[in-house]
């Protein structure tokens, strides 16, 4: 278990829901904190009677949505937008990502709630692209509710074996990513061969 993670766990054991709110809010806003893994661990704490599952869900959802909305609002404000647009216009991948998000805004927001730091990037881009706030809030809330419910439920069910399970999920994440990369590269290779 990493040093940072044990510090976060101690913080939550001492200050419970207040600590949970602060950590998840900051993670939703900008900081790369392991909030999903933390919620998994809190599910385990709840299974032992130390915390309440329903309160963990409500506090995590509220703070996550709030953090995402603040991130969205920051880029929506005029000064931040000019600053970011001037920096990002030099990257061609940003233009492609912008196109993708404009076309599939709802699904992008929803799916990236499961993907940690990528969710934060999408929050900023959603504000930059003037995605309507009600639309952003709806998909953000649904995505966060599903993510948090999954992690709390799995943490509660696995209890003390949560740490072993989080190693498996990390491995699964890498395996899925590599399979997608292999698939994309094979597609690229076949496309080139066809062109030749």
């Amino acid at each position: 278990m990493s040093n940072l993670f044990t510090i976060l766990l101690s913080f939550v054991l001492l200050y419970k829901y207040v600590a949970l709110f602060i950590i998840v809010f900051l993670s939703g806003l900008i900081l790369p904190l392991p909030s999903n893994t933390l919620i998994l661990a809190l599910g385990a704490f709840a299974s032992q009677g130390y915390m309440n599952v329903t309160l963990i869900f409500i506090v995590s959802l509220a703070s996550n949505v709030l953090g995402d909305c603040v991130g969205y609002a920051l880029t929506r404000s005029l000064k931040m937008r000019n600053l970011i647009e001037n920096r990002l216009k030099h990257f061609s991948t940003t233009a492609r990502l912008k196109e993708f998000i404009e076309q599939y805004a709802g699904w992008t927001i929803l799916i990236t709630r499961f993907l940690g730091t990528l969710g934060v990037v999408v929050n900023f881009l959603a504000g930059l692209l003037d995605i309507p706030f009600q639309y952003f809030l709806l998909y953000d809330t649904i995505g966060n509710a599903l993510t948090i419910a999954c992690f709390v439920f799995v943490g509660y069910g696995l209890g003390v074996y949560t740490e072993a399970y989080s190693d498996i999920t990390k491995l699964l994440g890498w395996i899925i990513l590599i399979i997608i990369l292999i698939f994309m590269l094979i597609k690229m290779f076949l496309h080139k061969k066809k062109k030749d």
Partner: peptide, 21 residues
């Protein structure tokens, strides 16, 4: 990918022995 799948199977076996799942 093959190496990661090997580690995945190892992890799953450990958890199965502990009857975690």
């Amino acid at each position: 990918l093959a190496i990661l799948c090997f580690f995945l199977v190892q992890q799953y076996r450990t958890i199965s022995q502990q009857k975690a799942i």
